[in-house]
Every structure is written in structure tokens, then in C-alpha cells.
């Protein structure tokens, strides 16, 4: 079964803002998922308990999520609200799709189409301007020492996949481009060699290579020269590549005090990841959640900026995890 997690527009919730230089770079995703879950089960709880008993028990996840086809929407998706206010051409819409480590690269076509489709429905828009994909396990390397860099990168959890795998994934993106759903394509964390190979072997070439610089500002000259000569724009980002580790998903959805009560307590004895706040997960008392093994598949971040004003109007995330029973 598939779990579709969403944040809705995080700009409405100030809690998603963190100090970029000090927080983990997926803090926004995690805290805005949590905030959105809380907002939904709190409403559900109030609705069910009008007499207001003081015990803040979480309502069953069934009251605020929605089962649809083979997936569970957490929370129930609502595409009615949240659409952009102005015409399409007023916006610069960027998607960044993170293919997560541990997910099968064979499913990327379905994953990519689903991610783009969810965002288009959320924003009420027919297309986006830029789709950047982040492949698991690759890190762009700066030339000079940059002590901040490694500490914000997070643990390396996956080996980089073969470039041929990335190129076959790219074909999916090219078809989205050909259909007019995406105007420009981009990749993240590509160094010079990988970018060069990619440029040679792709039809619709990447227009953007997004790299994580922090404050170091030391782009390797070879990469800079290649990017300039091939019209690849080097953009800056501040994301780690595994934005949604498995343990974090269990923590968010689990039955512990911080969890949303969607997942039951892990059955596997070996699965004893530490929670976000360091404590071992405790047995929840709430109604039993879903059992099984959770495996995050992908995350998509979307941003809509009003072009000639530089104002961000909408920003949010969708994430999909597979729950195998």
C-alpha cells in the first residue's frame, strides 16, 4: 500500500521556517509534515468530541486520512483550496523531485508522473517551468575545504547509481518535456564528469545543475566552464539528498507521542531506529495503526514564485512511501 504524505502550502505556517545555517536541511519538510498532520487530526478530534473532554487522545487516522485506490492520503488531499491566484504566465514554478535511496529505480516513470500530477492538481496549473531531479547518493564536491559542508550533508546512505540508470530515468523526464508539462529539466549535485557524460547522452539537455554550496562559494573551475559553455545554469540549493529517511517516516506516522498514529508499532525486532528526538519509540496506546514495513520512495518539493515581484506564493511537499505488509 502506498502512503501519500503532503504538507499543503507551508508558507501559511511559520513553523516551517528554520535557521538555514543551523538546522538540518530537511527540517522544513519534517516539521511541515508534522504540522499539517497535527492540524488535521486536531480538527478531527474537535469535531468528534464536541463536549470537550480534556484528554487529548488522537482520533483514529481513518477520520482524517483517505483511502483511495491503492493509496492512503495522509492527510486526505484537498485540491479545492490552495490553487494559485494568477494566470499561469505570472509564475515561475519549480519542482524538485528526490528519488530516495532504497526505492527501486525501475518505478521511476510512475513515480515521476505521479509527482508532477499531484503538484499540478494542487496548484491548479497545466504545467511547470522547471523540474529538477535529485538522484540518490551523489554529492557534488567542492574544490576547497568547506567544513560546514559535510556536516550539513547528512550521512551518505546510498552509493551513487550507474549513470545509465540515471539516463534511462531521464527519458521519462524528456517525455514530460515533450508533452509540454515541464518547460525545463535540471539535475542536482552533478560534478563536471557526470554532467559532461549526461550532456552527451541526453536529448533534452539539463538546463540547470543545482549544487549545494553553503557559504563557501568555491565552484570548481572545470564545472563552471562546462556549465557556461553548454548553457547550464548553476543554481544553489540547501537540501540534503536523502530528505526523508525511513526512520523519520516511521517516527512521523507511528504511534509514539510525536507520531500521527497511522502506523502501528513496528513488529520487527530489529527495527529500533532512534526517533527524531533521540528517544526510543514507546508503545502507543491509541488505536492500532497499519502494520508493515515502510519504505520512502520519493519526495517532491514545489515552489511557485510570482515572476516580476519575487514573491513566493506557494510552497509545499508531497512524499510517497510504500508500506509492505
Amino acid at each position: 500500500m502506498k502512503l501519500i504524505l503532503s504538507t499543503s502550502n507551508v508558507l501559511a505556517a511559520g513553523s516551517s521556517l528554520h535557521r538555514p545555517s543551523k538546522s538540518k536541511s530537511n527540517a522544513e519538510l519534517i516539521s511541515s509534515l508534522r504540522t499539517n498532520f497535527e492540524a488535521h487530526y486536531t480538527v478531527a478530534a474537535n469535531g468528534h468530541d464536541a463536549n470537550g473532554t480534556s484528554e487529548p487522545t488522537k482520533p483514529s487516522y481513518k477520520t482524517w486520512t483517505r483511502q483511495r485506490d491503492d493509496g492512503l492520503e495522509v492527510p486526505a488531499l484537498d485540491f479545492e483550496s490552495g490553487g494559485l491566484q494568477e494566470e499561469r504566465e505570472q509564475y515561475d514554478i519549480t519542482l524538485k523531485l528526490f528519488y530516495l535511496p532504497g526505492a527501486s529505480s525501475a518505478d521511476r516513470e510512475t513515480q515521476t508522473r505521479e509527482a508532477v500530477d499531484l503538484v499540478l492538481r494542487e496548484l491548479h496549473m497545466p504545467s511547470v517551468d522547471l523540474l529538477i531531479v535529485s538522484f540518490p547518493g551523489i554529492y557534488f564536491d567542492e574544490e576547497e575545504d568547506c567544513p560546514d559542508k559535510l556536516s550539513t550533508r547528512g550521512p551518505v546512505e546510498a552509493e551513487p547509481e550507474l549513470i545509465d540508470t540515471q539516463i534511462s530515468t531521464w527519458k521519462v523526464l524528456e517525455s514530460l518535456h515533450d508533452q509540454g508539462l515541464v518547460k525545463k529539466l535540471g539535475i542536482a549535485e552533478f560534478g563536471h564528469d557526470r554532467l559532461q557524460t549526461f550532456l552527451e547522452k541526453t536529448t533534452v539537455r539539463p538546463s540547470v545543475d543545482q549544487i549545494n554550496l553553503r557559504d563557501c562559494c568555491s565552484v570548481p573551475k572545470a564545472l563552471m566552464a562546462l556549465a557556461k559553455s553548454r548553457n547550464v545554469e548553476l543554481l544553489v540549493h540547501n537540501d540534503c539528498s536523502n530528505v526523508l529517511p525511513r526512520g523519520t517516516v516511521r517516527e512521523l506516522l507511528g504511534s509514539g507521542p510525536q507520531g500521527a498514529g497511522v502506523l502501528a508499532v513496528a513488529s520487527r525486532a530489529g527495527d529500533k531506529r532512534k526517533g527524531l528526538h533521540g528517544e526510543e519509540r514507546t508503545n502507543g496506546v491509541a488505536e492500532a495503526g497499519l502494520g508493515g514495513e515502510v519504505q520512502p520512495q520519493w519526495v517532491v518539493k514545489y515552489t511557485a514564485v510570482v515572476k516580476n515581484r519575487g514573491v513566493v506564493e506557494s510552497k509545499g511537499y508531497f512524499a510517497v512511501a510504500e508500506l509492505s505488509r
Binding site: L17, R19, S21, M224, V236, H237, K315
Partner: peptide, 23 residues
């Protein structure tokens, strides 16, 4: 209290900024 510069940095992290400009 987050601070005005971290807020500006959050904004910059949200939009597409090229390397040269960001530096």
C-alpha cells in the same frame, strides 16, 4: 526569534538563485 538575516536566507533557499548571485 529567527532573525532578519536567517529569514532572508530562508527566502533565498526557497527561490532559484544562481551561484554567482548567491555568493
Amino acid at each position: 526569534f529567527l532573525g532578519l538575516i536567517p529569514l532572508v536566507e530562508s527566502y533565498l533557499d526557497t527561490i532559484n538563485v544562481d551561484v554567482e548571485t548567491r555568493c
